[in-house]
Design a protein around this nucleic acid. Structure first.
Lengths: 211, 211
DNA sequence: GTCTATACTTCGATAGAC
DNA sequence: GTCTATCGAAGTATAGAC
Protein backbone atom coordinates (compact mmCIF):
# COMPACT_ATOMS: atom_id res chain seq x y z
CA UNK A 1 0.00 0.00 0.00
CA UNK A 2 1.64 3.24 -1.12
CA UNK A 3 1.46 5.63 1.78
CA UNK A 4 2.81 9.08 0.90
CA UNK A 5 0.51 10.63 -1.69
CA UNK A 6 1.80 13.97 -2.82
CA UNK A 7 -1.13 15.50 -4.60
CA UNK A 8 -4.09 16.86 -2.71
CA UNK A 9 -6.89 15.35 -4.77
CA UNK A 10 -5.50 11.88 -4.25
CA UNK A 11 -4.98 12.37 -0.56
CA UNK A 12 -8.49 13.75 -0.26
CA UNK A 13 -9.94 10.81 -2.16
CA UNK A 14 -8.06 8.36 0.04
CA UNK A 15 -9.31 10.09 3.17
CA UNK A 16 -12.83 10.18 1.76
CA UNK A 17 -12.89 6.43 1.25
CA UNK A 18 -12.15 5.90 4.92
CA UNK A 19 -14.66 8.45 6.14
CA UNK A 20 -17.55 7.57 3.82
CA UNK A 21 -17.15 3.83 4.25
CA UNK A 22 -17.05 4.09 8.02
CA UNK A 23 -19.91 6.54 8.42
CA UNK A 24 -21.92 6.65 5.22
CA UNK A 25 -22.71 9.70 3.15
CA UNK A 26 -24.84 11.46 5.75
CA UNK A 27 -22.57 10.56 8.64
CA UNK A 28 -19.38 11.58 6.90
CA UNK A 29 -17.92 14.96 7.87
CA UNK A 30 -16.17 17.11 5.32
CA UNK A 31 -13.98 18.54 8.09
CA UNK A 32 -12.76 15.10 9.06
CA UNK A 33 -11.96 14.18 5.47
CA UNK A 34 -9.99 17.38 5.01
CA UNK A 35 -8.11 16.96 8.27
CA UNK A 36 -7.21 13.35 7.53
CA UNK A 37 -5.98 14.39 4.08
CA UNK A 38 -3.89 17.10 5.71
CA UNK A 39 -5.76 19.63 3.61
CA UNK A 40 -8.61 21.96 4.48
CA UNK A 41 -12.20 22.25 3.49
CA UNK A 42 -11.57 25.03 0.98
CA UNK A 43 -9.11 22.79 -0.84
CA UNK A 44 -11.58 19.96 -0.88
CA UNK A 45 -14.28 22.14 -2.37
CA UNK A 46 -11.77 23.59 -4.81
CA UNK A 47 -11.03 20.15 -6.21
CA UNK A 48 -14.36 18.41 -5.96
CA UNK A 49 -17.05 21.07 -5.74
CA UNK A 50 -19.26 19.43 -3.15
CA UNK A 51 -19.50 16.61 -0.66
CA UNK A 52 -21.75 14.73 -3.02
CA UNK A 53 -19.45 15.14 -6.01
CA UNK A 54 -16.57 13.82 -3.93
CA UNK A 55 -18.65 10.86 -2.89
CA UNK A 56 -19.63 10.06 -6.44
CA UNK A 57 -16.05 10.34 -7.64
CA UNK A 58 -15.07 7.82 -5.01
CA UNK A 59 -17.85 5.40 -5.94
CA UNK A 60 -17.03 5.64 -9.62
CA UNK A 61 -13.40 4.98 -8.78
CA UNK A 62 -13.89 1.91 -6.70
CA UNK A 63 -16.60 0.23 -8.76
CA UNK A 64 -14.66 0.85 -11.96
CA UNK A 65 -11.60 -0.69 -10.34
CA UNK A 66 -13.61 -3.71 -9.23
CA UNK A 67 -15.04 -4.23 -12.70
CA UNK A 68 -11.58 -3.87 -14.23
CA UNK A 69 -10.41 -6.62 -11.94
CA UNK A 70 -13.16 -9.04 -12.90
CA UNK A 71 -13.49 -8.34 -16.63
CA UNK A 72 -10.26 -10.04 -17.76
CA UNK A 73 -11.34 -13.20 -15.98
CA UNK A 74 -14.72 -13.23 -17.69
CA UNK A 75 -13.07 -12.62 -21.06
CA UNK A 76 -10.30 -15.16 -20.68
CA UNK A 77 -10.31 -18.44 -22.53
CA UNK A 78 -10.68 -20.57 -19.41
CA UNK A 79 -13.72 -22.81 -19.16
CA UNK A 80 -16.65 -21.14 -17.37
CA UNK A 81 -16.33 -23.39 -14.31
CA UNK A 82 -12.79 -22.14 -13.89
CA UNK A 83 -13.86 -18.55 -14.45
CA UNK A 84 -16.34 -18.84 -11.60
CA UNK A 85 -13.64 -19.97 -9.19
CA UNK A 86 -11.34 -17.24 -10.44
CA UNK A 87 -14.06 -14.65 -9.98
CA UNK A 88 -14.57 -15.74 -6.38
CA UNK A 89 -10.86 -15.39 -5.70
CA UNK A 90 -10.72 -12.06 -7.52
CA UNK A 91 -13.62 -10.56 -5.58
CA UNK A 92 -12.01 -11.62 -2.32
CA UNK A 93 -8.64 -10.36 -3.54
CA UNK A 94 -10.08 -7.02 -4.51
CA UNK A 95 -11.63 -6.63 -1.08
CA UNK A 96 -8.32 -7.58 0.48
CA UNK A 97 -6.73 -4.64 -1.31
CA UNK A 98 -9.70 -2.33 -0.84
CA UNK A 99 -10.82 -3.09 2.66
CA UNK A 100 -13.49 -0.39 2.58
CA UNK A 101 -15.23 -1.73 -0.47
CA UNK A 102 -17.76 -3.95 1.34
CA UNK A 103 -19.06 -1.18 3.58
CA UNK A 104 -19.43 1.15 0.62
CA UNK A 105 -21.26 -1.43 -1.43
CA UNK A 106 -23.56 -2.46 1.42
CA UNK A 107 -24.46 1.13 2.17
CA UNK A 108 -25.27 1.90 -1.43
CA UNK A 109 -27.52 -1.11 -1.73
CA UNK A 110 -29.26 -0.12 1.50
CA UNK A 111 -29.65 3.39 0.16
CA UNK A 112 -31.28 2.08 -3.00
CA UNK A 113 -29.13 4.28 -5.22
CA UNK A 114 -30.61 7.40 -3.66
CA UNK A 115 -27.85 9.91 -4.35
CA UNK A 116 -26.34 8.30 -7.42
CA UNK A 117 -26.23 9.61 -10.95
CA UNK A 118 -26.34 7.52 -14.08
CA UNK A 119 -22.58 7.15 -14.40
CA UNK A 120 -22.15 5.79 -10.90
CA UNK A 121 -25.07 3.42 -11.27
CA UNK A 122 -23.58 2.18 -14.55
CA UNK A 123 -20.27 1.44 -12.85
CA UNK A 124 -22.07 -0.60 -10.20
CA UNK A 125 -24.20 -2.39 -12.77
CA UNK A 126 -21.08 -3.62 -14.54
CA UNK A 127 -20.40 -6.19 -11.82
CA UNK A 128 -23.54 -8.33 -12.16
CA UNK A 129 -23.20 -8.01 -15.93
CA UNK A 130 -19.70 -9.48 -15.91
CA UNK A 131 -20.52 -12.38 -13.60
CA UNK A 132 -23.82 -12.98 -15.34
CA UNK A 133 -22.12 -13.30 -18.72
CA UNK A 134 -19.94 -16.13 -17.42
CA UNK A 135 -22.92 -17.96 -16.01
CA UNK A 136 -24.80 -17.70 -19.29
CA UNK A 137 -21.74 -18.82 -21.24
CA UNK A 138 -21.44 -21.89 -19.06
CA UNK A 139 -25.13 -22.64 -19.27
CA UNK A 140 -24.95 -22.46 -23.06
CA UNK A 141 -22.07 -24.90 -23.03
CA UNK A 142 -23.94 -27.12 -20.62
CA UNK A 143 -21.26 -27.03 -17.95
CA UNK A 144 -23.10 -24.68 -15.62
CA UNK A 145 -26.59 -24.98 -14.21
CA UNK A 146 -29.00 -22.68 -15.97
CA UNK A 147 -29.91 -20.16 -13.29
CA UNK A 148 -30.98 -16.55 -13.48
CA UNK A 149 -27.66 -14.68 -13.98
CA UNK A 150 -28.49 -11.95 -11.48
CA UNK A 151 -29.36 -14.55 -8.88
CA UNK A 152 -26.12 -16.35 -9.58
CA UNK A 153 -24.28 -13.07 -9.12
CA UNK A 154 -25.83 -12.52 -5.72
CA UNK A 155 -25.23 -16.11 -4.69
CA UNK A 156 -21.53 -15.66 -5.37
CA UNK A 157 -20.90 -12.06 -4.44
CA UNK A 158 -23.15 -11.57 -1.43
CA UNK A 159 -21.51 -14.00 0.99
CA UNK A 160 -18.05 -12.69 0.15
CA UNK A 161 -18.94 -9.05 0.62
CA UNK A 162 -21.04 -9.61 3.70
CA UNK A 163 -18.66 -12.02 5.38
CA UNK A 164 -15.55 -9.95 4.75
CA UNK A 165 -17.38 -6.69 5.42
CA UNK A 166 -18.81 -8.24 8.57
CA UNK A 167 -15.44 -8.63 10.24
CA UNK A 168 -15.78 -5.40 12.30
CA UNK A 169 -19.17 -6.24 13.73
CA UNK A 170 -18.08 -9.78 14.53
CA UNK A 171 -15.16 -8.23 16.35
CA UNK A 172 -17.56 -6.00 18.30
CA UNK A 173 -19.64 -9.06 19.17
CA UNK A 174 -16.56 -10.96 20.26
CA UNK A 175 -15.55 -8.05 22.49
CA UNK A 176 -18.87 -8.52 24.28
CA UNK A 177 -18.33 -12.30 24.44
CA UNK A 178 -21.35 -12.85 22.22
CA UNK A 179 -19.56 -15.07 19.71
CA UNK A 180 -16.38 -17.07 19.65
CA UNK A 181 -14.38 -15.07 17.18
CA UNK A 182 -12.58 -17.92 15.49
CA UNK A 183 -11.90 -15.87 12.40
CA UNK A 184 -10.78 -17.98 9.57
CA UNK A 185 -7.98 -17.01 7.19
CA UNK A 186 -8.94 -15.37 3.93
CA UNK A 187 -7.63 -18.42 2.11
CA UNK A 188 -9.92 -20.83 3.88
CA UNK A 189 -12.87 -18.58 3.24
CA UNK A 190 -12.08 -18.26 -0.46
CA UNK A 191 -11.86 -22.02 -0.77
CA UNK A 192 -15.18 -22.39 1.02
CA UNK A 193 -16.84 -20.01 -1.41
CA UNK A 194 -15.23 -21.69 -4.40
CA UNK A 195 -16.53 -25.04 -3.20
CA UNK A 196 -19.97 -23.54 -2.62
CA UNK A 197 -20.03 -22.07 -6.12
CA UNK A 198 -18.76 -25.28 -7.66
CA UNK A 199 -21.26 -27.48 -5.89
CA UNK A 200 -24.23 -25.22 -6.46
CA UNK A 201 -23.53 -23.95 -9.97
CA UNK A 202 -21.36 -26.39 -11.86
CA UNK A 203 -23.00 -29.36 -13.50
CA UNK A 204 -21.39 -32.64 -12.57
CA UNK A 205 -19.02 -33.48 -15.37
CA UNK A 206 -20.04 -36.63 -17.23
CA UNK A 207 -16.48 -37.93 -16.86
CA UNK A 208 -13.70 -37.29 -14.33
CA UNK A 209 -15.80 -36.09 -11.42
CA UNK A 210 -13.48 -35.54 -8.50
CA UNK A 211 -15.74 -35.69 -5.51
CA UNK B 1 -50.37 -5.37 7.93
CA UNK B 2 -52.37 -3.57 10.66
CA UNK B 3 -52.56 0.07 9.66
CA UNK B 4 -54.17 2.21 12.36
CA UNK B 5 -51.91 2.13 15.41
CA UNK B 6 -53.45 3.99 18.30
CA UNK B 7 -50.57 4.45 20.70
CA UNK B 8 -47.83 6.96 20.05
CA UNK B 9 -44.85 4.79 20.86
CA UNK B 10 -45.92 2.20 18.33
CA UNK B 11 -46.63 4.74 15.64
CA UNK B 12 -43.28 6.36 16.30
CA UNK B 13 -41.49 3.04 16.10
CA UNK B 14 -43.21 2.22 12.84
CA UNK B 15 -42.25 5.58 11.39
CA UNK B 16 -38.71 5.17 12.66
CA UNK B 17 -38.26 1.88 10.83
CA UNK B 18 -39.08 3.57 7.55
CA UNK B 19 -36.87 6.58 8.17
CA UNK B 20 -33.85 4.77 9.57
CA UNK B 21 -33.90 2.00 6.98
CA UNK B 22 -34.15 4.46 4.11
CA UNK B 23 -31.55 6.92 5.35
CA UNK B 24 -29.45 5.30 8.03
CA UNK B 25 -28.90 6.59 11.53
CA UNK B 26 -27.03 9.73 10.55
CA UNK B 27 -29.30 10.51 7.63
CA UNK B 28 -32.52 9.98 9.54
CA UNK B 29 -34.32 13.10 10.75
CA UNK B 30 -36.16 13.14 14.02
CA UNK B 31 -38.60 15.70 12.62
CA UNK B 32 -39.51 13.43 9.75
CA UNK B 33 -40.09 10.48 12.06
CA UNK B 34 -42.35 12.55 14.29
CA UNK B 35 -44.29 13.97 11.37
CA UNK B 36 -44.81 10.56 9.80
CA UNK B 37 -46.00 9.23 13.14
CA UNK B 38 -48.41 12.16 13.40
CA UNK B 39 -46.70 13.09 16.65
CA UNK B 40 -44.12 15.75 17.43
CA UNK B 41 -40.54 15.73 18.51
CA UNK B 42 -41.34 16.40 22.14
CA UNK B 43 -43.50 13.30 22.19
CA UNK B 44 -40.78 11.25 20.61
CA UNK B 45 -38.26 12.39 23.19
CA UNK B 46 -40.78 11.84 25.95
CA UNK B 47 -41.13 8.19 24.99
CA UNK B 48 -37.66 7.29 23.81
CA UNK B 49 -35.24 9.81 25.28
CA UNK B 50 -33.00 10.25 22.27
CA UNK B 51 -32.59 9.52 18.61
CA UNK B 52 -30.09 6.82 19.45
CA UNK B 53 -32.31 5.14 22.03
CA UNK B 54 -35.13 5.05 19.51
CA UNK B 55 -32.82 3.50 16.95
CA UNK B 56 -31.65 0.84 19.36
CA UNK B 57 -35.20 0.01 20.38
CA UNK B 58 -36.02 -0.52 16.75
CA UNK B 59 -33.01 -2.75 16.11
CA UNK B 60 -33.71 -4.82 19.19
CA UNK B 61 -37.30 -5.22 18.02
CA UNK B 62 -36.59 -6.37 14.53
CA UNK B 63 -33.66 -8.68 15.27
CA UNK B 64 -35.55 -10.27 18.13
CA UNK B 65 -38.49 -10.84 15.82
CA UNK B 66 -36.23 -12.38 13.20
CA UNK B 67 -34.65 -14.73 15.71
CA UNK B 68 -38.09 -15.69 17.05
CA UNK B 69 -39.06 -16.64 13.52
CA UNK B 70 -36.04 -18.87 12.94
CA UNK B 71 -35.66 -20.49 16.35
CA UNK B 72 -38.68 -22.84 16.16
CA UNK B 73 -37.34 -24.18 12.89
CA UNK B 74 -33.92 -24.90 14.34
CA UNK B 75 -35.51 -26.58 17.34
CA UNK B 76 -38.04 -28.67 15.42
CA UNK B 77 -37.66 -32.39 14.94
CA UNK B 78 -37.16 -32.17 11.18
CA UNK B 79 -33.91 -33.50 9.76
CA UNK B 80 -31.23 -30.84 9.43
CA UNK B 81 -31.43 -30.82 5.60
CA UNK B 82 -35.08 -29.93 5.89
CA UNK B 83 -34.35 -27.31 8.53
CA UNK B 84 -31.95 -25.59 6.15
CA UNK B 85 -34.60 -25.31 3.46
CA UNK B 86 -37.12 -24.12 6.01
CA UNK B 87 -34.68 -21.52 7.27
CA UNK B 88 -34.19 -20.19 3.76
CA UNK B 89 -37.93 -19.87 3.30
CA UNK B 90 -38.34 -18.33 6.74
CA UNK B 91 -35.69 -15.68 6.17
CA UNK B 92 -37.28 -14.73 2.88
CA UNK B 93 -40.71 -14.78 4.49
CA UNK B 94 -39.57 -12.57 7.31
CA UNK B 95 -38.20 -10.05 4.84
CA UNK B 96 -41.44 -10.21 2.93
CA UNK B 97 -43.24 -9.09 6.05
CA UNK B 98 -40.52 -6.67 7.17
CA UNK B 99 -39.46 -5.06 3.94
CA UNK B 100 -37.07 -2.70 5.71
CA UNK B 101 -35.11 -5.43 7.39
CA UNK B 102 -32.43 -5.86 4.70
CA UNK B 103 -31.48 -2.20 4.59
CA UNK B 104 -31.25 -2.07 8.37
CA UNK B 105 -29.10 -5.16 8.53
CA UNK B 106 -26.80 -4.06 5.70
CA UNK B 107 -26.29 -0.66 7.28
CA UNK B 108 -25.45 -2.13 10.66
CA UNK B 109 -22.90 -4.48 9.16
CA UNK B 110 -21.38 -1.59 7.21
CA UNK B 111 -21.28 0.45 10.40
CA UNK B 112 -19.43 -2.32 12.21
CA UNK B 113 -21.71 -2.10 15.23
CA UNK B 114 -20.62 1.47 15.86
CA UNK B 115 -23.57 2.79 17.84
CA UNK B 116 -24.80 -0.48 19.30
CA UNK B 117 -24.92 -1.56 22.91
CA UNK B 118 -24.51 -5.07 24.18
CA UNK B 119 -28.21 -5.92 24.09
CA UNK B 120 -28.61 -4.96 20.47
CA UNK B 121 -25.46 -6.79 19.45
CA UNK B 122 -26.71 -9.86 21.28
CA UNK B 123 -29.99 -9.78 19.37
CA UNK B 124 -28.08 -9.65 16.09
CA UNK B 125 -25.72 -12.39 17.15
CA UNK B 126 -28.64 -14.75 17.74
CA UNK B 127 -29.16 -15.24 14.01
CA UNK B 128 -25.82 -16.84 13.11
CA UNK B 129 -26.06 -18.86 16.31
CA UNK B 130 -29.40 -20.36 15.30
CA UNK B 131 -28.37 -21.22 11.76
CA UNK B 132 -24.96 -22.43 12.89
CA UNK B 133 -26.52 -24.84 15.35
CA UNK B 134 -28.45 -26.54 12.55
CA UNK B 135 -25.34 -26.87 10.42
CA UNK B 136 -23.39 -28.43 13.27
CA UNK B 137 -26.26 -30.77 14.07
CA UNK B 138 -26.31 -31.95 10.48
CA UNK B 139 -22.57 -32.32 10.31
CA UNK B 140 -22.63 -34.44 13.46
CA UNK B 141 -25.27 -36.66 11.88
CA UNK B 142 -23.27 -36.80 8.68
CA UNK B 143 -26.04 -35.41 6.52
CA UNK B 144 -24.52 -31.95 6.12
CA UNK B 145 -21.04 -31.03 4.91
CA UNK B 146 -18.83 -30.00 7.78
CA UNK B 147 -18.27 -26.32 7.16
CA UNK B 148 -17.55 -23.45 9.51
CA UNK B 149 -21.02 -22.58 10.90
CA UNK B 150 -20.55 -18.84 10.56
CA UNK B 151 -19.51 -19.25 6.95
CA UNK B 152 -22.53 -21.43 6.33
CA UNK B 153 -24.71 -18.72 7.86
CA UNK B 154 -23.34 -16.10 5.51
CA UNK B 155 -23.62 -18.41 2.53
CA UNK B 156 -27.31 -18.83 3.22
CA UNK B 157 -28.33 -15.47 4.60
CA UNK B 158 -26.23 -13.05 2.55
CA UNK B 159 -27.71 -13.70 -0.89
CA UNK B 160 -31.24 -13.51 0.46
CA UNK B 161 -30.73 -10.24 2.28
CA UNK B 162 -28.68 -8.64 -0.48
CA UNK B 163 -30.88 -9.80 -3.32
CA UNK B 164 -34.14 -8.84 -1.69
CA UNK B 165 -32.68 -5.66 -0.23
CA UNK B 166 -31.21 -4.88 -3.62
CA UNK B 167 -34.57 -4.51 -5.31
CA UNK B 168 -34.63 -0.70 -5.04
CA UNK B 169 -31.21 -0.17 -6.58
CA UNK B 170 -31.98 -2.63 -9.36
CA UNK B 171 -35.08 -0.59 -10.01
CA UNK B 172 -32.98 2.58 -10.16
CA UNK B 173 -30.64 0.87 -12.60
CA UNK B 174 -33.54 -0.31 -14.69
CA UNK B 175 -34.91 3.23 -14.80
CA UNK B 176 -31.62 4.26 -16.39
CA UNK B 177 -31.78 1.30 -18.81
CA UNK B 178 -28.66 -0.18 -17.25
CA UNK B 179 -30.14 -3.62 -16.61
CA UNK B 180 -33.10 -5.55 -17.85
CA UNK B 181 -35.21 -5.65 -14.76
CA UNK B 182 -36.69 -9.10 -15.18
CA UNK B 183 -37.45 -9.37 -11.49
CA UNK B 184 -38.28 -12.83 -10.50
CA UNK B 185 -41.07 -13.77 -8.10
CA UNK B 186 -40.16 -14.30 -4.49
CA UNK B 187 -41.11 -17.95 -4.89
CA UNK B 188 -38.63 -18.59 -7.67
CA UNK B 189 -35.90 -16.87 -5.71
CA UNK B 190 -36.60 -18.91 -2.58
CA UNK B 191 -36.44 -22.11 -4.58
CA UNK B 192 -33.16 -21.02 -6.13
CA UNK B 193 -31.67 -20.40 -2.70
CA UNK B 194 -33.01 -23.68 -1.37
CA UNK B 195 -31.41 -25.48 -4.28
CA UNK B 196 -28.16 -23.61 -3.73
CA UNK B 197 -28.13 -24.52 -0.05
CA UNK B 198 -29.02 -28.14 -0.76
CA UNK B 199 -26.37 -28.59 -3.42
CA UNK B 200 -23.63 -26.84 -1.52
CA UNK B 201 -24.33 -27.97 2.03
CA UNK B 202 -26.18 -31.26 2.02
CA UNK B 203 -24.20 -34.44 1.62
CA UNK B 204 -25.51 -36.66 -1.14
CA UNK B 205 -27.64 -39.28 0.51
CA UNK B 206 -26.19 -42.78 0.11
CA UNK B 207 -29.59 -43.97 -1.12
CA UNK B 208 -32.50 -42.26 -2.92
CA UNK B 209 -30.59 -39.31 -4.38
CA UNK B 210 -33.03 -37.39 -6.51
CA UNK B 211 -30.86 -35.40 -8.85
C1' DG C 1 -3.27 26.22 -5.25
C1' DT C 2 -3.61 27.11 -0.33
C1' DC C 3 -5.41 28.99 3.95
C1' DT C 4 -8.46 31.60 7.62
C1' DA C 5 -12.58 33.27 8.90
C1' DT C 6 -17.30 33.21 8.57
C1' DA C 7 -22.03 33.13 6.53
C1' DC C 8 -26.02 30.32 6.38
C1' DT C 9 -28.66 26.26 7.43
C1' DT C 10 -30.19 22.29 9.62
C1' DC C 11 -30.81 19.38 13.33
C1' DG C 12 -31.10 17.22 17.98
C1' DA C 13 -32.85 18.36 22.14
C1' DT C 14 -35.49 20.98 25.85
C1' DA C 15 -38.30 24.47 28.34
C1' DG C 16 -42.56 25.36 29.80
C1' DA C 17 -47.65 25.94 29.05
C1' DC C 18 -51.71 23.09 29.02
C1' DG D 1 -49.33 12.91 27.74
C1' DT D 2 -49.33 16.51 24.28
C1' DC D 3 -47.96 20.72 22.06
C1' DT D 4 -45.33 25.29 20.48
C1' DA D 5 -41.41 27.78 20.45
C1' DT D 6 -36.72 28.05 20.65
C1' DC D 7 -31.81 27.28 22.00
C1' DG D 8 -27.28 25.89 20.90
C1' DA D 9 -24.32 22.86 18.44
C1' DA D 10 -22.67 21.22 14.31
C1' DG D 11 -22.38 21.08 9.52
C1' DT D 12 -21.82 22.49 4.38
C1' DA D 13 -20.21 25.82 1.75
C1' DT D 14 -17.92 30.26 0.33
C1' DA D 15 -15.52 34.83 0.46
C1' DG D 16 -11.37 36.78 0.04
C1' DA D 17 -6.40 37.28 1.26
C1' DC D 18 -1.98 35.34 -0.12
Amino acid sequence: MPRPLKVSPERILAAAVIEFSARGFAGARVDRIARRARANKAMLYYHFGSKQALYRALLLNIFTAAAARLRPIAESSSPPEQKIEDLVAAIAGFIDEHEHFPAIMLREIAEGGAHLDRGTLAAMAALPAIVGRVVVEGADKGTIRRVHPVMAYFTIMAPIVLYLGGAPIRKAMAAHKLVNLSEVTSDVFVRHMQATARLSLVNAAPSKARS
